[in-house]
Nucleic acid binder design. Sequence first.
DNA 1: CAGAAACGGGG
DNA 2: GTGTACGTTTCTG
Length: 594
Amino acid sequence: MEREVVILDIDYISYEDKPVIRLFSKDGDKNVILIDDSFVPYLYVYSNDPDECIDDLDELLDNVKIEKLNKKDFQIEKTFIKVTFTHPQELSKHRDEIRDLDSVVQIREFDIPFYRRYLMDRDVIPMTKVKASGEKLDSFSALDSEKHDVEIIKLDKALQRVDENFNDFRILSFDLEVRNPHGMPDSQEDEIIMIGVASNFGINQVISTKKNSPERDDFVCQVSSEKEMIQTFADIIKENNVDIIVGYNSDNFDFPYLIDRAKINDVDLDLGMDGSDIRFIKRGFTNAASMKGLIHVDLYLVMRRYMTLERYTLERVYYELFGEEKIDVPGERIWEFWDNGGEELDNLFDYSLDDVVSTLKIAEQTLPLNLELTRIIGQPLFDVSRMATGQQAEWFLVKQAYFDEEVVPNKQGSNFTDRANAEDNEGGFVLEPDKGLHENLVQFDFRSLYPSIIISKNISPDVLVEDDVEDSGEYNVSPEHDLKFMKTPQGFIPSVIDKILQERFRIKREMKACDDPTEKKALDVQQQAIKRLANTMYGIYGFPRFRWYSFECAKAITSWGRQYIKYAMKESEKYGFKAIYADTDGFYAKYVKK
DNA sequence: CAGAAACGGGG
DNA sequence: GTGTACGTTTCTG
């Protein structure tokens, strides 16, 4: 059978000792899980003596496929040994043994999560529409498709891209209010008193065990107990085919709290498309709440990247975006409002609704950009919404490297990281502002200074000349450290930036020619997403934990940057201007005389 | 003063 | 989940 579906999310499970990719998708109101058991994990081995190394690998490993092939490493064609395993856990189990073999110089691409590898290699792009073809299964593994109203399709050929932009996602925001009379809420002690829900499909309500004046009847939904409150909330999500659930600090507060209270009240929170429970994904020191096929976006994390503020409270972020004050009830007084009832209880209902409505508004404002980023980077929205911008750029580059047949660089070891951390790059040129009131000012800005320098000077680790060679015109030489970059061929990262900037200009042209305001807006969001990504690429050189870390490249970029801004300031003096303030890629100048 | 620990958001 | 935050402020010895 064939179906057009939108890919929402991805994971893999083990079935008969084989990895099976599951693509959680939707076709309108119908949940569809696409199954693909044809993908297996691999890594690359580099050896000075490939044939001897293959013998060693043969001896060491069972159930693997070993093949010699040519791949590029920093643009140099090299022979690598590709080792293909039957299961990701097998790869992880044997990784260190392979690395330790005498004939092995290094292993590569051994730390790329299986589902991400799948998305890149098969060019499957989350949050896009695809045509899927395969056999419909009645059930698969532990999953009961009757019970969970989900269709399972076992893919029999590659997904086909459908050239149509899909943006009609069903979004729901939620927020808990808790009765915490003794300081911060304690999930073992303090009950949930309200669950606010707002959506872009008509449901806006506050579920609560209390009710007060009839004026709040249109949005307060009274239930008999906390248990029923949680159950009602779970039913709303399950019955309304929600694609994206958003909260504010929900990774850290709402979901953990809800799960604790659900446990105490013996309620199933089986919100996953396959009937599975909410799970916590370990992410360094914090957790992320995740459900299969229901994308949870914590807007707090998104907003920290989206705008620069001194604080990121919901109130502050909302004010910044919409210029309106939110209804406020101080956290430490919520229990009093609840206990006192009457007008105060009504205020609390209003506050709860205001919180979720604001959260939804913020989601509608910021998700389009994140959806575009998701599609450009080619990784799940759940992941992308939690990645630092540098990581977004890195995963984008990993995917580009695959298309260029490049083997991606390994991340630096931790001891190197410490050393590299100590290295301090000078950064952009800053001229402290000349204090006072100035007249006749002009402003000067370089357009995308760092991306432009990377492209024009071809700054990339694969074309950096390490040896002490004489320059006879074939290199770009940095102004301060005499770092030499070959003029040809184009470096990997300059070529990627070049490509995406060209794509940005193409979109801008399309925008100009476009008459439909909705389409125009969508194109604008696309080009903004690309601009963000291009501007982040410079950062990729400066952070030791990233694969393309290169202190030399970072130094070269900023040194050229300083040269250009100083040159521009000097040139302006010839026309009677005097710079009164400068920072990195622009300056303000005062007209003094002709 | 350097290195360790806490913090953010949420109620 | 084939990778384990992060940058800044405050505390402590």
